[in-house]
Structure formats: C-alpha cells, structure tokens
C-alpha cells in the first residue's frame, strides 16, 4: 500500500509551497480546522496566498494566524465576522476579499472537485454578488453563473484516517472538509487518529482515499469553542 503518512505537518507540506499559490482550507469557524497544518504553513513563511475558506478564523487562531503575519493577500470567504484584524485589513484595503454566499462557496468548491467548470444558481441574483456575472432565466426565474474553485493545495481535518487514506469526520467538524478535500490534486489530511485499512467500514467512509495524497497526525487539537453556551440540568 502506498504510504501517504508523513511524520510531521512540515514534512507533509515539503516541496508543495510557493509564493502566490491558492490554498483551500476546511473548517467552519474554529470547528474542524486543520490546526497543525495551518501552524506549519505559518512557520513555512510562504507568502501572497489566496485562501479559499468559509471563515478567517479569529484574531489569534486558525487562519487569523496567517493574517497576523500578512501571508494572505486574497481570501474567498462567506463570513469573516469573528475576526477583527481581518475586518481592519479589509477596510484599509490591505487584503483583497471576495465574499461568496456560503452555499455558492460550497458548490463552487464541489464543482471544482467534480470537473464542472460553472453552474447557475438563484443565490445572489440581483445583488452585488451577481454583478458582472452571466445571468439567465430558467422557468421565469433569474439565475447567475458561478464558476468552479480549484486549489493548488487543499488542507482538511478528519477524525480518523485509515492506512489507505479514507477519512471519517466527526459531527459538525465535517462541514467544508469533504468538498475541500476534492478541489485539489494535492490534498493533505490532518487526522486525529490513524487506523488500519478496514477499520472505517467501507459503507461509512466520508472521503474516499483517491482524494487524499498525504496524511499527517493532528498534533495540535485545541478545538477552541467560539461561543460556549450551556443549559442547567433539567
């Protein structure tokens, strides 16, 4: 079996990084983030990145770490509201931001991974999102054309990864990870636990191994909670 496992996140990234590259990153807020790989990316010093990610982390965690170091020059995201530094860099024109509706973002990434160059959607028709985009009427309704997103490198976080590269995600930490895993020819999975091939039942695999080129163990699992809300016992 081809060995996809790398000892460290730094080793997994070795030879893949170049300034000006496009990187897609899984996660929603701080949930399901490839924390170890993001830190290795920061430490690599690679610059002028275009990052495709639903969110931008918070000031001092997740992609916020790469904003602090000004390694990101462009982002494609749906919501960056939890990151003050990002808001500041955007309002002052230091960073280029393309806002993309969340469902359109997920579908553009999915399309990129599935060989579909573009698709039509109602989402954003008649709004600034539709400006400059081809528009067509289907069944009397306005649709805009959205193009696929692909990345030079994709980084995902999974709960379990088997020897073959099949992945299983856990609860809402799944989020963007399965589509992000498909949108590049070079996807690295950071997994919380390595398991033998066959340990993830074939019927339960979320991301099949063909999408995963490299794997590394998640050595950082802070899993910060952005908004802790609890109730008292009933």
């Amino acid at each position: 079996m081809a060995n996809k496992k790398y000892d460290t996140a730094q080793a997994a990234l070795d030879g893949l990084l170049f300034d000006g590259m496009t990187i897609a990153v899984g996660g929603f807020g701080l949930c399901g983030l490839p924390e170890t790989l993001i830190i290795a990316l920061r430490d690599s010093g690679v610059r002028d990145l275009t990052v495709i990610s639903n969110n931008a982390g918070v000031d001092d965690w997740g992609l916020g770490l790469l904003l602090q170091t000004r390694q990101i020059s462009r982002m494609v995201s749906s919501y960056v509201g939890e990151n003050k530094e990002f808001e500041r860099q955007h309002l002052s024109g230091e960073i280029n931001l393309e806002f993309c509706p969340q469902g359109t973002l997920a579908e553009r990434i999915r399309a990129g991974g599935a060989g579909i160059p573009a698709f039509y959607t109602r989402t954003g028709a008649g709004t600034v999102v539709g400006e400059g985009k081809e528009e067509r009427i289907f069944d009397g309704e306005r649709y805009i054309m959205e193009t696929a997103l692909k990345a030079d490198l994709a980084l995902v976080k999974a709960w379990r990864g088997d020897d073959k590269g099949n992945l299983l995600y856990r609860k809402t930490a799944r989020n963007f990870n399965p589509v992000v895993a498909t949108c590049s020819r070079m996807t690295i999975a950071e997994v919380e636990e390595f398991v033998p091939a066959g340990a993830i039942p074939a019927d339960a695999v979320h991301t099949p191994s063909v999408y995963i080129r490299r794997m590394t163990l998640a050595r950082i699992n802070e899993k910060r909670v952005e908004k802790l809300v609890t109730r008292t016992e009933d």
Binding site: H90, Q102, G103, T104, T121, T123, G124, T127, V129
Partner: peptide, 13 residues
C-alpha cells in the same frame, strides 16, 4: 464587513 454567510442561499432557496 462580516459577510453574508448562508443568508443569500437561505432566502433565495
């Protein structure tokens, strides 16, 4: 500047 998140998809779908 926060972004639309899923709001545009939700209202149009």
């Amino acid at each position: 500047v926060k972004g639309m998140g899923g709001a545009m998809d939700l209202v149009s779908g």
